[in-house]
């Protein structure tokens, strides 16, 4: 277990939390803990209870979906400093995809139940957390849309404009 003060520093150093006040960092640190995954471990799996999110301190995670005959199709990979998971924010709080460690992964997880409880009463915390999640979601959506275009496909395969 990391001492609380160290967790404050750890969160403070992460770009996702940049600019948060010491009070809010302390609130977040109260819901946070360090985690470590070996290559091949699942951080979470589709359908499981989405009770946390991760900020990646080191390593690579594949977000994937199992499909018949295709095995696991990797939708995207996430890397050091990326944020992973927002199903904890959206009822019914179930994971929609799998997340698998491709390499050794060191991450900080934040407990979703703990955070949801605090956000209910502490709207300032809720505001700051959501205003950090929305751009991440927007960026992922943009990347997904561009991927959907299959930009580098041979011309015949490009979806009509």
């Amino acid at each position: 277990m990391v001492p609380m003060q160290d967790m404050d520093d750890l969160l403070n150093a992460h770009p996702f939390f940049a600019g948060l006040s010491p009070r809010l960092l302390e609130e977040l640190a109260g819901c946070a803990r360090n985690e470590r995954f070996d290559a091949g471990d699942y951080l979470f799996q589709e359908g499981g209870v989405a009770d946390r999110f991760y900020i990646l301190r080191h390593g690579q995670v594949a977000v994937e979906v199992k499909a018949p005959h295709a095995g696991a199709v990797v939708l995207e990979t996430l890397h050091t400093d990326d944020t992973l998971g927002w199903s904890w924010l959206v009822p019914p709080h179930h994971w929609t995809f799998d997340a698998r460690a491709v390499t050794l992964v060191r991450a900080v997880s934040l407990d979703g139940v703990c955070l949801r409880g605090k956000m209910e009463t502490d709207h300032e915390l809720g505001f700051h957390l959501l205003s950090r999640f929305v751009p991440v979601m927007g960026e992922r959506l943009r990347a997904a849309r561009l991927q959907m275009l299959d930009l580098y496909a041979p011309p015949g395969l490009t979806p009509p404009a």
């Binding site: 690579q60 990797v74 990979t77 960026e139």
Partner: peptide, 23 residues
């Protein structure tokens, strides 16, 4: 190098090249 799609044999990044820029 990042790719739009891959099987499990590819251990590199998957996603748009814009993500490499952001990194």
């Amino acid at each position: 190098v990042t790719v739009d799609r891959a099987t499990g044999r590819w251990s590199g990044p998957i996603g748009m090249v814009t993500k490499l820029i952001a990194r």
